[in-house]
Design a protein around this nucleic acid. Structure first.
Lengths: 166, 166
DNA sequence: AAATATCAGTTGCGTAAAGAGACTGACCCT
DNA sequence: AGGGTCAGTCTCTTTACGCAACTGATATTT
């Protein structure tokens, strides 16, 4: 059986994972954010195998997350640049980094620091609500199910502790 | 060959992906955030196969992201609850969702809305700098390489356009 | 002129992981 | 005794991953 893809799931998380959720893909994007844009550069810095890198880059280009730009002729050679959509993935990577910094810190400290140009401080990202500017946490959110069908499905499948709470 | 794991990479993104970067894992967490905590519930709602679900849940429990709590005796049955570390993964899922909502919107609209209890508005998350409270974007950040060794490695591997910029 | 190096892949092969479905085992209800 | 629920385990087949070797176009070195 082929690995399930998440395309048919009507869920933004699933849809996004379908494009960037494969093994290696987020690390490739990280390196491109760091300014590594060429095949051999990614290859050596990541320690990925060539065929996998080829595959992942192609998929990212197909999904309009990267753009393949020629930087020389004869022989033709390319760099992989983030599109606008790709650049917008930055908060996801930053969130992954923030969680790792907090819960899996390296004893010898990080190798890289991201400085927020505007204030000159090392990145310590926080997710806030764009309306009230206050932090978003799991406990501070309420799930509003918009489809009657899904509501029934969830009711059947949720643990009673949640199901019985109104 | 076994799939490369990212444990030896001194990078918080890689470390985090090593725990939650596998296929299905973020969707399992999503469903648990939605209140689905039992094996059969996850199974039916996700459409995952049983062996994969078993495997992923075990890994999440081992990595202290989920906790296996008995909810009945004879036969003993369990629910999977998020630990504090697990709850703290929420911003990652929210960022994934926000990107999908923006760049891969479903024509018929989303099935689920997350309401920020504090202000009553649907979630539209934003990543901000905890110091100056201003948005964090890729272009607004500067990479500060703390290790001389890594700096040399990056210098060798970066595209000239970045390399030559001081 | 021949050998070596660089870059960006492609091809082939062996192993590991994913997926479906059947099976197990402990209980419950009727 | 028969059927249902829950949480897995086992087996089997198909993919995906990782490595190494190869291709092909050009540049540089000997």
């Amino acid at each position: 059986m082929k690995r399930t893809n998440f395309q048919d799931m009507r869920c933004s998380i699933a849809q996004t994972l379908n494009l960037i959720g494969e093994w290696w893909t987020p690390l490739i994007l990280r390196d491109i954010f760091y300014g590594i844009r060429r095949f051999e550069g990614l290859l050596t810095h990541l320690g990925i195998s060539r065929n996998i890198l080829t595959d992942r880059l192609q998929a990212l280009v197909e999904n309009d997350i990267l753009e393949r730009r020629p930087y020389q002729q004869s022989p033709e050679r390319f760099e992989y640049w983030l599109t606008e959509r790709g650049i917008d993935l930055y908060p996801i990577l930053i969130s992954l980094m923030a969680w790792g910094d907090r819960w899996l810190p390296n004893e010898e400290g990080p190798l890289i620091e991201l400085i927020h140009k505007e204030c000159g401080m090392p990145a310590s990202p926080e997710v806030v609500c764009s309306h009230c500017r206050k932090p978003i946490t799991a406990r501070g959110m309420r799930v509003n199910v918009l489809s009657e069908e899904l509501a029934e499905e969830l009711a059947a499948v949720r643990s009673p502790s949640v199901r019985d709470r109104k």
